[in-house]
């Protein structure tokens, strides 16, 4: 059964069509890139999967179920902005995650935090933007979830941290779980992905395996993206 499915999914904000009739099915064991220019509907799709937004019509399903507290218990979500409480120390965040999520692997989180040189006694308020992003990512990736929804996980961090994040995604790979990474830094994530979905003005413009793209078209996913979403004509 697909872990993530959209059936004739449509989302409008007033008159603006954010997602227009999306049909998708993602199987466990895949790492999928959700790619598209700004405003193509990437974050909207992820928020619908989390139940943070309601579809205008159609449905989104997590393991066959509509989003609910039960499905959120198996979905690990990294929002595209910092949502950590400023007054909390990292140690308290670990407690908080441990209380909230049965699948939270605290030992893994502590290991990653120490690899990144992050102090458990520092409060979120004292952290730089990059540090907050790292902590938030560690918390997200330390859950043993069935579906990971990572909204722009590598957007705001330096290249070395970007490598660490991608490394973390690879070493956390679980054939029972799917990972969806939304980003426009395609060249960086490309080697890590099984499949890509190109979103264009709320439509699925392409859903294909990365190796297939390189094999049949003789070009990288990054090059194909630049071609499909070219912003000007010569």
């Amino acid at each position: 059964m697909p872990i993530f499915e959209c059936r004739a999914l449509e989302k409008r904000y007033g008159a603006a069509m954010a997602l227009d009739h999306i049909d998708l099915a993602l199987e466990p064991g895949r790492i999928v890139g959700l790619l598209g220019p700004n405003g193509s509907g990437k974050s909207t799709l992820i928020k619908l999967a989390m139940g943070l937004l309601q579809p205008t019509s159609g449905e989104v399903l997590i393991g066959g179920q509509a989003p609910s507290p039960q499905t959120n218990a198996v979905v690990s979500y990294l929002p595209d902005r910092i949502t950590l409480s400023p007054w909390m120390k990292t140690r308290q965040l670990l407690d908080f995650y441990g209380d909230f999520f049965a699948d939270f692997d605290r030992a893994a989180a502590e290991r990653m935090l120490s690899q990144l040189g992050l102090d458990l006694n520092q409060s979120v308020r004292q952290m730089s933007k990059g540090m907050k992003e790292k902590v938030q990512l560690v918390l997200t990736m330390s859950r043993r979830a069935k579906l990971y929804l990572l909204d722009e996980p590598i957007g705001g961090v330096d290249p070395a941290t970007r490598d660490y994040i991608l490394h973390t995604i690879i070493s956390n790979y679980n054939p029972e779980a799917a990972v969806i990474i939304s980003t426009h830094l395609i060249a960086d994530v490309e080697p890590v992905l099984d499949d890509v979905i190109f979103l264009d003005h709320g439509h699925v413009a392409l859903h294909e395996s990365c190796e297939e793209i390189r094999e049949t078209r003789g070009q990288s996913v990054d090059a194909l993206f630049r071609e499909v979403f070219k912003c000007w004509e010569n």
Binding site: I170, P191, V192, D194, C210
Partner: peptide, 17 residues
Amino acid sequence: VRELAADAGVNPNTVQR
């Protein structure tokens, strides 16, 4: 597979293949 995927920075299914 896991070691090589992490080392090479590529998808584990690609290494498997």
